[in-house]
Nucleic acid binder design. Structure first.
Length: 214
DNA sequence: ATCCCGAGGG
DNA sequence: CCCTCTGGAT
């Protein structure tokens, strides 16, 4: 496993991320907590661009669990057919909407346990909603964060929870809030999975990737 | 560990 | 063609 970078190195890395993008936002379109939850649930193994294309028309008409139930599973399936895993996702979103109406007054719950009890909502999706909407200090570790954390030495770990903890323990407090989005953006546009663009990487001199592979 | 699944990129 | 994309449930 890659070694853990030192505190001052990680501080410098995030200072550079901040200089490039001072207020990083998620790139999943949404208009409220419910549509955020649905968009994140739909984004599993899919690109944000693909999800946004499908939810643009959907969220214009459907922005509450009640309206989602009125649309129905078949109607929802038509909207999201272009997204991977669409059958399971349609079924989960309809079941989830029913639970929100039945048990949470049509609102999105703000506790991790309640969120993760919803069908199709696991640790990662719950963390995104908790941090993005409810401003809780939760670190969502997805494929990008996991890859970048391990490659660079910012947050190495064998599994998601180890990487989560490494971020909590080693990313300086002032950068915690936006760490998730900075790591996502870095992973999406520079530290890409297949062929990382080290030639244009702003943190190349601090990263452990080439040291490890060469 | 495996399944679910389509779109886009290389 | 093959791989990857802000995973979750079994």
């Amino acid at each position: 496993m890659v070694r853990q970078l030192a505190y001052h190195e990680i501080h410098e890395i995030f200072a550079r991320f901040q200089a490039v993008e001072p207020e990083p936002k998620g790139e999943l379109d949404h208009v409220n907590a419910f549509t955020l939850l649905v968009a994140v649930a739909l984004s599993a193994q899919a690109t944000d661009a693909g999800v946004n294309k499908a939810t643009r028309a959907l969220f214009a008409a459907v922005d509450t669990p009640q309206k989602m139930l009125a649309l129905g599973e078949e109607g929802l399936t038509e909207h999201i057919r272009t997204i991977g895993l669409y059958r399971q996702k349609a079924r989960n979103v309809i079941r989830l909407s029913q639970i929100l109406v039945d048990s949470y007054g049509g609102e999105v719950p703000s506790s991790r346990a309640a969120l993760q009890s919803l069908p199709g909502v696991g640790r990662k999706t719950a963390n995104v909603v908790l941090s993005m909407w409810f401003h809780h200090p939760a670190q969502a570790v997805d494929t990008h964060v996991f890859r970048v954390g391990n490659r660079t030495g910012i947050a190495p770990g064998r599994d998601v929870e180890q990487v989560e903890r490494a971020i909590e323990d080693h990313v300086p407090a002032p950068f915690q809030k936006h760490a998730h989005h900075w790591l996502i953006l870095h992973g999406r546009y520079i530290c890409v999975a297949r062929k990382p663009k080290c030639g244009i990487c702003p943190i190349r001199d601090l990263c452990l990737y080439e040291e490890k592979t060469l």
